[in-house]
Design a protein around this nucleic acid. Structure first.
Length: 613
RNA sequence: GCCUCGGUGGCUCAGUUGGCAGAGCGGCUGACUCGUAAUCAGCAGGUCGGGGGUUCAAAUCCCCUCCGAGGCUCCA
């Protein structure tokens, strides 16, 4: 809806001819006028049809606010098509205008008039000409409130490793502080925090990992070289593990037609807020996961029961969710993020559960490599009551894999498109829970998308689909690692993810040759090393290397040069050791193991490095 | 989106009842040639987030707006 608001000394109009869309009027109202009035010229637009209540509400608020500002209570609503080139259907527009009129009339102390719709009119308007006397407003509807906003009836329990289900209020949370915080976080509205900026936000900037980009939309970050490196390593690792587990990598579009039948239905069941963009003929939305892309591929495939379980994966760069402004927090919650999204078509529930368990174990294992052990997150398993009664042992097995009590949520009946899901939740210092890995058993979408496989009996059947993000969003993994670091006595990243793995600090110029020799040996072994060649003191260089969380700091002075040994500060255990270059190489390589290696994407001498922050 | 709080050199922040925009770090220049968490001195650097208003005078008061943090809500 477009509004042009003119604060006038007087407005008067008279009707001339009808257009095709003229609303019916008796003869009494062929002309009208109003003194000292806010004239509101209105164009109702196509997009308003999506959520009329909401547009009316917002428009009324605007008009009310402007009236207050200019100090008038007289309002003339004046339909005016020329403010927009995407007009709504005329019948819809008349209804909407009438509604605005009614709503305004319901406000106390206002005098409302409305000019008729669909007539050629002559009008005279005397604008007051003060600074606020001419205003325009564009009102767009919020996305229609989700139809699925009804109450979900569910009950929380704690399930321990011996298969005992507890009422959380009766469970002894001693030694399970985080589980307790997670339960409180999930079950109550109690989200009290220390009101401080989260550690990872301070650190992501100080460590030159990521930063806000005010020139973009909120929740869209920029990544500096170190951040890009960490992110890229994680992406590579996570994708590789998914492929190794048998998934086929695909790539699907980031935008889709809002009016596609299957997508429209799904949008209602997954009510994430979308970014929308206009193309010539279509209104498109940016994907919030790779579900549609992979389902649409699946629909066109010819699948035999012999092919199942069948997995597709995509590292979605990007997924978009237009989260509410106040929900965005650093790397924890974004509007644009990177997420591995894997879907597995399974023949039946038995196969789905078998796969579910494998993917659960895969997730545990991946997080471990990434540097998050089972101590670092809490497990939630959620399912319908039926499901639990029929498959108790299955759920108990999941608990035993994690080997500590988990939070269980039991839904009275199936409410979502899935019958079961788990998530691993990182709990940060301020008690906030953030989901990382998750798998859902979807019993609805195969049918909706027309995905079928041919079973042994020759009949086409709908598969059950697993949705899996084995690590959760990459940015969230980074958030968790940084937050975890900030809670450690000596913050550190896993060696394979540390941008600089070895910092070499020569003390005098005389050590330059040996320093370079060490550097190139490390480089040749695929180890990310750099040299602090700046004109500064040793203490200061050590301090700065420590603040960068560098796992190995090598100091080279006269003694080392002559003995061809290295004095190495090992951050992990705060120790200092004398190592040969070969020993150092062996240690680093051992720690990195088969995890991805990438070259340092910064100049290898610190004197060449500019500051990003 | 709503509520609360905030935005001052690249960074972190001070700036009193409205009255000449400051410090530390970083950068640059020079000195120091250094052995494990900040060597010393000098110099440069600011449309006080943006727009409008009040005022003789606005970083400071008012309005609008953008951005950030926390909360509500929600999630990968």
């Amino acid at each position: 809806m477009r509004l042009l608001l003119i604060h006038s000394d007087k407005i008067e109009y008279s009707l001339k001819d009808k257009t095709r869309y003229a609303e019916y009027l008796d003869n009494s109202s062929k002309s009208d006028s109003m003194d000292e009035a806010l004239v509101v010229f209105v164009s109702i637009e196509k997009i308003d049809e999506k959520n009329p209540e909401n547009v009316v509400k917002k428009a009324i608020k605007e008009i009310k606010d402007v009236c207050k500002e200019v100090g008038t209570v007289n309002v003339m609503l004046y339909p005016y098509a020329h403010l927009s080139d995407t007009l709504a259907d005329p019948n819809f527009s008349i209804e909407l205008l009438k509604r605005m009129e009614t709503e305004l009339n319901n406000l106390d102390g206002f005098n409302i008039k409305r000019a008729p719709f669909g007539w050629y009119k002559a009008f005279n308007l005397q604008c007051k000409g003060h600074p606020l006397s001419e205003l325009s407003r564009t009102i767009t509807p919020d996305k229609e409130e989700d139809e699925s906003k009804e109450e979900v009836n569910s009950t929380f329990y704690i399930l321990d490793t011996r298969g005992r289900l507890y009422d959380p209020d009766l469970f002894d949370f001693t030694n399970y502080e985080n589980l307790k915080r997670f339960y409180i976080y999930e079950s109550t509205g109690d989200r009290k925090t220390d009101n401080k900026t989260p550690n990872h936000i301070l650190l992501m900037r100080r460590e030159e990992i990521a930063d806000y980009e005010p020139a973009s939309d909120p929740g869209n970050m920029r990544y500096y070289p170190k951040g890009r490196l960490i992110k890229s390593l994680l992406e590579e690792y996570i994708l590789k593990r998914a492929l190794d587990s048998g998934a086929m990598e695909v790539e699907t579009p980031v935008m889709y037609d809002t009016s596609h039948p299957a997508l429209g239905e799904y949008l209602k069941r997954f009510p994430a807020r979308r970014y929308e963009i206009d193309s010539e003929k279509k209104r498109l939305f940016l994907r919030f996961s790779a579900c549609f892309g992979q389902f649409l591929i699946g629909k066109d495939m010819t699948i035999s029961y012999r092919n199942l379980p069948l997995k597709m994966v995509e590292m979605t760069k990007y997924s978009f969710r237009r989260e509410q402004r106040g929900e965005l927090t650093g790397l924890r919650r974004l509007r644009t993020f990177t997420m591995p999204d894997m879907h597995t078509f399974c023949s039946d529930l038995d196969q789905a559960m078998e796969e579910f368990e494998k993917q659960y174990e895969l997730s545990v294992d991946m997080l471990k490599d990434i540097g998050l052990s089972t101590k670092d997150y809490e497990v939630a398993i959620r399912f319908t009551r039926n499901f639990y009664e029929e498959d108790k042992e299955f759920i108990e097995r999941l608990v035993s894999i994690i080997d500590k009590p988990v939070l269980v949520e039991i839904w009275d009946e199936r409410f979502f498109y899935f019958v079961m899901k788990f998530e691993f939740n990182f709990i940060d210092k301020s008690g906030k829970a953030t989901s990382l890995s998750t798998v859902q058993i979807d019993v609805e979408n195969a049918e909706r998308y027309g995905i079928t496989y041919t079973d042994a009996d020759g009949r086409d059947k709908s598969p059950i689909i697993l949705h899996c993000s084995p690590s959760g969003a990459i940015e969230r993994v980074m958030y968790s690692l940084i937050e975890k670091g900030s809670m450690m006595d000596i913050p550190i990243l896993p060696t394979w993810l540390s941008p600089t793995q070895v910092r070499i600090i020569p003390i005098h110029k005389e050590e330059n040759d040996f320093t370079e020799e060490v550097y190139f040996k490390l480089l040749n072994e695929g180890i990310r090393a750099d040299i602090d060649d700046r004109d500064s003191t040793l203490s200061k260089k050590i301090r700065e290397a420590e603040m960068e969380w560098i796992p190995y700091i090598v100091v080279i002075g006269e003694k080392e040069r002559k003995g061809r040994m290295l004095s190495v500060n090992i951050r992990k255990d705060k120790s200092k050791e004398e190592l040969s270059v070969e020993d150092l190489i062996r240690r680093v390589k051992e720690e990195v193991g088969s995890l991805p290696k990438k070259s340092l994407n910064l100049p290898y001498t610190l004197s060449k490095r500019a500051k990003f922050v």
